[in-house]
Amino acid sequence: MSDKNLTIELLEKRGEKLAKRRTFFKNIGGLSVGMVAGSMLTACGGGVSSAIAQMAVPTDIDILNFALNLEYLEAQFYSYAVFGTGLPAAMLTGTGTQGAVVGGQQVPFADPLVAQYAKEIAKDELAHVGFLRAALGSAAVAQPALDVGGTDPNGAFSQAARAAGLVPAGVAFNPYASDANFLLGAFIFEDVGVTAYKGASPLIENKTFLEAAAGILAAEAYHASLVRTVLYSKGITTTPALISSANAISGARNSLNGNNGKDQGITNATDPTMSNIVPLDSNGLAFSRSAGDVLNIAYLTKQSVTMGGFFPKGANGKLNMSSQF
């Protein structure tokens, strides 16, 4: 291939990647509306979507900081569940407003296997926070305000469980109360993390960052598969309600994403007697979610907003707006 043809090919590939990044934000909003207000809207011919599509191409830093928000959330949940305490104060600082955590308590694990699995995942999530903070350096966002409590009937876990029909109005769902509740609480998060990293992968330009994100994606997939496997195993041996509860949580997540089919329960949709440990599309591929779609689940809303649910004051960084369904 001549140098000229090689240059043209490289430019075409670069153009295709930028087009994907613009489409990503045209579809989801994704950035705070304030960033594209006023004269920018006029210059772009009106319309927030148009302005975002033209102006708001996320950087690798934006994407990794979005991932860091999710890792703060998961790490705090698992840390409280396993150790009874939250993350060290030194791991919470950064740019943006540092928020407080509505925390939980140590789970009184009855099954030693579940206890060991939980401890392993907790250590992994703590490592993810540390790794992303080190990779981002001074650009790392601070931990935002988080709600991972378990006793408030209006808390995030209770809202999520209520959306799935697991508890009635006025009743709290406490993911720290038992092994079963812990597994269901973990299930709320784990599949979302996998789809978030897969959705972000085409947008990351730096190959070192992309490899790191792929590594975290693989770890999150192992975690999700482990949680799904234990839920299914216990569901067919000792606690049948776990299967219907997990499937109901999957249905609630799918509903928050406009019933777009990017979520699956732990049993086969066409043959309930079969397990469905790995949720895949018709090509055997894991699903992808945009940042906005992920925040619909984290904020517990179908609306385009910048806060709610597990992030009472919103995610820190530029990627802080959920999708509109």
Results as ranks from 00 to 15, higher is better:
Pro175Thr: 04
Met321Lys: 15
Val167Gly: 04
Gly104Glu: 13
Ala213Asp: 02
Met1Ala: 12
Thr151His: 06
Thr270Gly: 10
Thr7Tyr: 07
Met307Ser: 10
Gly29Asn: 09
Asn260Thr: 01
Leu210Val: 05
Lys123Phe: 03
Asn65Cys: 06
Tyr78Val: 01
Leu242Ile: 05
Phe189Pro: 00
Asp281Cys: 13
Ile204Leu: 04
Gln116Ser: 13
Leu136Met: 04
Ala161Cys: 00
Gln303Asp: 13
Thr85Arg: 15
Ala142Leu: 10
Glu190Ser: 15
Lys17Met: 06
Cys44Lys: 14
Leu300Pro: 01
Tyr232Met: 01
Phe209Asn: 13
Leu132His: 01
Asn296Ser: 12
Ala43Met: 10
Val294Ala: 11
Pro279Val: 01
Asp60Asn: 07
Asn316Ala: 03
Phe77Tyr: 13
Leu146Ile: 11
Asp3Cys: 04
Asp62Glu: 10
Ser322Thr: 08
Gly314Phe: 11
Asn5Pro: 00
Thr97Tyr: 00
Pro202Phe: 00
Gly150Asn: 08
Ala164Cys: 07
Ala214Cys: 00
Leu10Thr: 12
Gly155Ser: 09
Ala180Trp: 02
Val230Phe: 01
Pro153Val: 05
Gly38Glu: 14
Glu71Ala: 15
Thr59Glu: 05
Gly34Val: 06
Pro272Tyr: 02
Asp281His: 10
Asn69Arg: 02
Ser39Glu: 15
Gly170Asn: 09
Gly150Val: 04
Ala177Gln: 12
Gln98Trp: 01
Leu226Arg: 10
Ala224Phe: 04
Val36Ser: 11
Ile121Glu: 07
Asn259Met: 00
Gly96Arg: 09
Ser323Glu: 09
Ala139Arg: 15
Ala186Ser: 15
Arg14Ile: 08
Val114Lys: 02
Phe209Val: 13
Glu205Asn: 08
Met307Glu: 07
